[in-house]
Amino acid sequence: MDQDLSRTSLSRDAILLTGQVALVTGGGGGIGRGIALGLAEFGADVAIVDIDGEAAERVAALVREKGRQALVIVADVMDRDAARGAVATALEGLGAVDILVNNAGGTRPIKLVDMTDRQIDRQIDLNLKGLVAITQAAAKAMIARGAGGSIINIASIEGLRAAPTYSVYAACKAGMLNFTRTLALELGEHAIRVNAIAPDLVPTETMARFAPGIVSPEGRAAQARYIPLGRAGNLDDCAGAAVFLASAMAGYVTGVTLSVDGGTWASSGWTRNDADGWRLFN
């Protein structure tokens, strides 16, 4: 048998990110914080980009407690010059950008007919346009270094399904997924892999503050009915997916969207109840 067809060289070290540098946008809180800490746990040094410098500093301190280098970059990725500058600062401060995690984004529910032009523009700027300049700058740096790389876009299940009161946000996340697939083709020849993570419900401090029902007993009971794994996601769920996609374990994975949703994308209207198990639209 050809040696290439019978390789069994995979080792535990393939999951490690030792010696690599990750840049995480929106790394000061929520899913971004979880991913920054997860990448550091597996050996990466981390540049934390956030508009909230104090929040980013708190995450940086936790990264350093893990024995890794951390660099705080206060920037708004919606500002193209600031986004490109963040990559330049990471290169200067940490020497490379091997992993880019485009996590910055967000939304609040509102019907399209009620949205102002300013609200629409902000949704597009934050959730779609905001990742283009920093991805372009990071990709150029990866190509120049010649060591490959991993770009991970944090999308949403709302990019895969209809999302009433989140129409513009959902459209942006769908655009992010096609951006991911297309860029995977463009950058493949440089050994740069581009993938996306599509979380569903992952309660964060901000979400709990603005939508307390999500963490209420009633909310948790509803989650047990419509999420096949019976619970909401957490930061480690997303961090684990990011670590995998950033590592050599995913060395032949590019252009994919990994749903980190407890099975809700698969359930597609099926809900669970104690009496009958799974039922459709009930």
Rank of each mutant, 00 (worst) to 15 (best):
S6H: 14
R12N: 14
R12K: 12
G19K: 05
L23K: 01
V24C: 00
G26I: 02
R33C: 13
R33W: 08
G34A: 11
A36L: 04
L39M: 04
F42W: 09
D45A: 08
D50T: 01
D52H: 10
G53H: 12
A61Q: 15
V77C: 11
D79H: 15
A82K: 15
A83I: 08
R84E: 15
A86V: 03
A90F: 01
A96D: 09
V97W: 00
A104M: 04
I120N: 11
D125C: 08
L131I: 08
I134E: 01
Q136T: 08
A138I: 02
G148H: 15
I152T: 02
I152L: 01
A155D: 02
I157V: 10
L160C: 05
R161C: 11
T165G: 04
S167N: 12
A171L: 09
C172Q: 04
C172R: 03
K173E: 02
A174H: 14
A174T: 14
F179P: 12
L183F: 14
G188Q: 04
N195G: 08
D200V: 02
L201E: 02
M207C: 12
V215K: 03
G219I: 06
G219E: 14
A224S: 10
A224E: 05
A224W: 04
R225A: 03
L229K: 02
D237N: 05
C238A: 06
A250Y: 03
Y252I: 06
G255L: 13
G262I: 06
A266F: 09
G269H: 14
G269E: 13
A275C: 11
W278F: 04
